[in-house]
Simulated scan of single mutants.
Amino acid sequence: MDLEHIAAVGKAIERLLGADTPADPHRTALVITHTGFILDYVQADVGHLMIDGRIVGAGDPRTLFRHIKAHGYSLPPADADVQQVI
């Protein structure tokens, strides 16, 4: 998705997730991103880091995104606030 439209899509996702009804009180979404910029618009609870087709870490999505921006797609160090899943 291009960056011009990411805000609109993120806001739409948040609107859909926030539209709890008595018949559907808890909504969940799976958002897959390569850039992480959608996190500016979606309040994600947990993120997963996938490397070479395997989930290797789980934790706060913003923490994972900061690590990826700084170090690329690599496993964060053991002292990071990321659960290693390997």
Rank of each mutant, 00 (worst) to 15 (best):
G10T: 04
S74M: 02
Q83L: 13
P76W: 00
G57I: 05
H48M: 12
G72S: 06
E4T: 12
R54I: 05
A12F: 02
Y73Q: 02
V42L: 14
R27I: 07
G53L: 11
D45H: 14
V82W: 05
T35K: 10
T35C: 09
I38S: 11
L16H: 05
G47E: 02
A23F: 05
P76L: 04
V82C: 08
V82Y: 06
R62A: 13
R27Y: 03
Q84D: 03
Y73S: 07
I68P: 00
A29P: 05
I51D: 11
I68G: 00
V85D: 00
D81S: 12
R54H: 10
M50K: 13
H5S: 12
L17K: 09
H67P: 01
A7N: 07
D20A: 15
P61I: 05
H5L: 15
G47K: 04
T28G: 02
L39K: 04
A58I: 03
P77Y: 02
Y73W: 07
V82K: 06
V82H: 02
I86F: 13
M1S: 15
M1K: 11
A58C: 11
D79S: 13
L16Q: 06
G53E: 07
A19H: 11
D81F: 01
H26F: 14
D52M: 03
D60P: 06
A44F: 02
I32P: 08
M50A: 13
G53V: 06
D2G: 15
A44L: 08
E14S: 15
Q43I: 08
A7D: 13
I6F: 09
T33E: 06
L75V: 11
Q84H: 14
F37G: 09
H48E: 12
G59P: 08
D20R: 15
I51W: 12
I55Q: 07
P77F: 00
M50E: 13
L16Y: 00
D40T: 01
Q43T: 14
Y41G: 10
T28R: 13
A80V: 00
H26C: 14
F65S: 02
A8M: 10
R54K: 14
A58P: 01
T33R: 09
A23L: 15
I51R: 11
P76K: 04
I6W: 03
I38T: 09
A8T: 14
A8G: 15
Q83E: 14
G10W: 08
P77I: 00
H48S: 06
H34W: 02
R54E: 14
R54V: 07
